[in-house]
């Protein structure tokens, strides 16, 4: 059955499929902006996008510009297995960044060898086009 396994494995890098709840995030990223939903009533920032505030349940919000600055909250170094499209980069980092606005965001720190990442490492967002429609938000050390 191993031939079948190889023939059906995903070869491409999967990309986000924007939807009505989050398209603003991707449109902002394409412009080089990091925007998150922020509650118009209690002021709490949130990610992932959703139609109501998890703190006060208000449905009033706007997509506000975030600083893009944050610190590494936790991370893993992927040695594999992983999807074939990512294999060339092994071992690579995946990180959770706690942004200054208080939201957690999962991404990668670019140009940072695995043994140089540390907790609370200061990072800032960078914007990496992945297709005509999608720009991914990554991070760099600052």
């Amino acid at each position: 059955m191993s031939d079948l396994r190889e023939s059906v494995i995903t070869q491409t890098r999967p990309l986000p499929q924007p939807g009505l709840d989050n398209v603003e995030f991707y449109e902002a990223a394409k412009r080089g902006e990091l925007r998150f939903q922020r509650c118009s009533d209690c002021g709490a920032w949130r990610h992932y996008p959703r139609p109501a505030c998890p703190e006060c349940q208000s449905r009033n919000f706007s997509w506000e510009l975030a600083s893009g600055r944050g610190r590494v909250f936790t991370w893993a170094i992927v040695h594999g297995p992983t999807l074939p499209a990512f294999r060339d980069e092994l071992p690579y980092n995946v990180v959770d960044v706690l942004l200054d606005e208080g939201v957690h965001f999962q991404s990668q720190v670019l140009d940072c060898p695995p043994d140089e990442i540390y907790a609370e490492m200061p990072v800032e967002a960078v914007f990496v086009p992945a297709s005509e429609d999608i720009t991914l938000v990554k991070f760099r050390r600052r």
């Binding site: 494995i9 999967p14 893993a76 992983t82 995946v94 990180v95 959770d96 999962q106 991914l136």
Partner: peptide, 30 residues
Amino acid sequence: WERMDPMLPGMNQWHVPHGLVTPFQEMAMI
């Protein structure tokens, strides 16, 4: 996770495009 859709509408869209593909990668962060 080896048969991931090329375009992800669900929660995976926030993880998988960054190479955060498998449960053990996610659990490694925790």
